[in-house]
Amino acid sequence: MKQTMLGVIDATSYHESLEDLLLHRSLAAVPIAGRYRLIDFVLSNMVNTGINSVAIFPKFQYRSLMDHLGSGKNWDLNRKRDGLFFFPSPDLQGREDGVGSFNHFAYHLDYFYRSKQEYALISNCYTLCNFDFKPVLDRHKRIGCDITELRKDGKPLEMYILKTSLLIDLIENRKASGYMCMKDVVEDLQNTYKVCGYEQDGYVESINSIEKYYSTSMNLLTPDNWKQLFQKNAPIYTKVKDEPPTRYVSGSSVKNSIVANGCFVEGNVRSSTVFRGVRIGKNTTVSNSIIMQKSQIGDNCVLENVILDKDVKIEDGVKLIGDPMAPIVIRKGMTQGALMNS
Rank of each mutant, 00 (worst) to 15 (best):
I9W: 12
D10G: 11
S13T: 14
S17A: 13
L23M: 12
H24R: 14
L27S: 01
L27A: 06
G34F: 00
R37D: 00
F41A: 01
V42H: 04
T49N: 02
N52R: 15
V54L: 10
A55L: 14
F57P: 03
F57S: 05
F60S: 07
Y62Q: 02
L65R: 03
L65Y: 06
D67V: 12
L69T: 04
L69G: 03
G72T: 07
N74T: 08
N78S: 13
N78A: 15
K80Y: 14
R81M: 09
R81C: 11
G83T: 08
F87M: 15
P88N: 08
L92V: 12
R95Q: 15
D97Y: 11
H104Y: 00
Y107D: 08
Y111N: 05
Y113A: 08
Y113K: 07
S115T: 07
E118T: 15
A120R: 10
S123L: 10
N124G: 15
F131I: 11
D132K: 04
D138N: 12
D138L: 15
H140G: 03
T148A: 11
R151I: 13
P156N: 15
P156T: 14
L157C: 09
M159E: 11
Y160G: 08
L162T: 06
T164D: 06
L167I: 01
L167H: 07
D169A: 10
N173A: 01
A176N: 07
M180N: 09
M182F: 13
V186N: 05
V186R: 03
E187S: 14
L189R: 12
N191Q: 10
N191T: 06
Y193H: 07
Y193N: 02
K194C: 10
C196Y: 05
E199F: 05
Q200W: 04
V204T: 13
V204R: 05
E205G: 04
I207M: 08
S209E: 00
S209G: 07
E211I: 13
K212Y: 02
K212Q: 08
S215V: 00
S215M: 02
S217F: 00
L220Q: 00
Q228R: 13
N233K: 09
P235Y: 09
T238A: 13
T238L: 07
K239Y: 09
K241P: 07
P244E: 14
P244D: 14
P244G: 13
P244I: 12
V249K: 15
V249C: 15
G251M: 04
S253A: 06
S257N: 06
I258W: 04
I258A: 02
V259N: 03
A260G: 09
V269M: 08
T273L: 03
V274M: 01
F275T: 03
G277D: 02
K282N: 01
T285N: 14
S289E: 07
S289H: 06
I290Q: 01
N300V: 00
N300R: 02
E304W: 04
K310T: 11
K310P: 00
V312C: 12
K313R: 14
I314T: 06
D316G: 11
G317R: 02
G317P: 01
K319Y: 08
L320N: 02
P324Y: 08
A326Y: 12
P327M: 05
I328A: 03
I328Q: 01
I328G: 01
M334A: 11
T335D: 10
A338W: 04
A338L: 00
A338M: 06
